[in-house]
Every structure is written in C-alpha cells, then in structure tokens.
Amino acid sequence: MKRTGPLVVCFIFAIIMMVQAFVPHPFSEDFLQLSNNHLMVMSTFALAIGISTFVHLHLTKIRKNGEGWYFSIVALVGMVVTATVGIFGKTEAGTLYDKIFFYIQNPMQSAMFSLLAFFMASAAYRAFRARSFEATLLLLAAIIVMLGRVPIGDLMTGGATSKITEFLFSVPNMAAKRAIMLGVSLGVIATSLKIIFGIERSWLGGTD
C-alpha cells in the first residue's frame, strides 16, 4: 500500500498533465497554475527538511572533529547570519541582506565560475593531444574554430577560417546535436512511461 498509493496518484496526475499539454482552454491553464502553486507549498516543507539535514551534517562534523570541521562552522554561521538578517531585517537594495548577497555571495560565486577558464585550458590540453586519428581530427577542427572566432584568423586566411567554422557549426556539429536530441527525447518519453505505468519504481523508495 505504501507504494500503490503514490503509484496511483502518479498515474492519474501524469495522464491529467499529459492531456493538459493539448488543452489550451483557460480552465486547463488554471489547473496547471494550481498544480505549480501546490508544488511551491510542498517545497517549503521540503526546505525545512533540507535545512535540518544541513545543520545535522555540519554539527556532526564539528562534534567529531572531522577533516575541515572549521569549514562547517563557517557554513553554519553563514546560514544563521544570512537567515537572521533576511528574516528580521529588510531585503531591499542597500540593506545588510543585499550587501551580504552582492559583496560576499556574488564575488564567491564569480570566483568559482572563473575557475572554469583554467579548467577549460587543462581539459583542452588533454582533449587535443593527437594520439589517434579521431583526436587529430578534433585538434584540427578546434584550431580552425579558434582561428575562425578571432579577427587574426580571417586576416591570415582571407576569411576562410570563419567560413569553415560556420560550416563546422551548422552542418556536422548541428547534425550530431540533433541526433543526440532525438535520442534524448525518446529516452525522456520512455522513462516517463516507465514511471507512469509503474514499471520503474525505484524512485519511490520505501517498501511495499
């Protein structure tokens, strides 16, 4: 029963939502809006559980003096301070909450994002080592695309690199992308049907 109930609910709502996609009537749109609102209400409760596991995890780590336990203190203090300032203070521009976001969280996220540039360089180095025919082909394509994206490339080749780049993007690259997208679409439908018909049940967890 623990599984049958959710399976029945899942089946009924999945069929309703499937039909909803083909019904443009305002009634159908209102129903979709209502469902989304319910999801938001439920996610509020899930947030409480998320926070409790977050606190529990870091408190356990501090108590056990696990490796990097002091980072857990930073995480907990950060969460408590931000939440307190947000709940008891104002959140408009120029307030402390706003400053925490713009002067602490934003720069940290930007720093993390900027690492991507260096990771890309190291990943490119590995990918472009011409150890096989395919890797050599990849290297050549990459060189052409890189030259095709900068003015000096066209200057050196009389505009040829940007034309070849355009061709590489719009023909072989697009063909491969569309092939993957078609496969993904079929996979998405097959997985959805597996869940709707209860063939795949591991996402439910729990026991019968």
Binding site: S43, L47, I49, I51, T53, S202, G205, G206, T207
Partner: peptide
C-alpha cells in the same frame, strides 16, 4: 550530496531501500 532538498528526500529513500 544533494542540490535540491526534494531530490534529497527521494535519494534518501532510494538508497535506504537499496540497502534493505
């Protein structure tokens, strides 16, 4: 490690069931 608390709840159940 979970990014979404909804997903985390399901993951917990799934892993627990797998162990059982």
């Amino acid at each position: 490690p979970a990014y979404d608390y909804f997903v985390m709840m399901v993951q917990k159940e799934v892993v627990k069931e797998a162990y059982m």
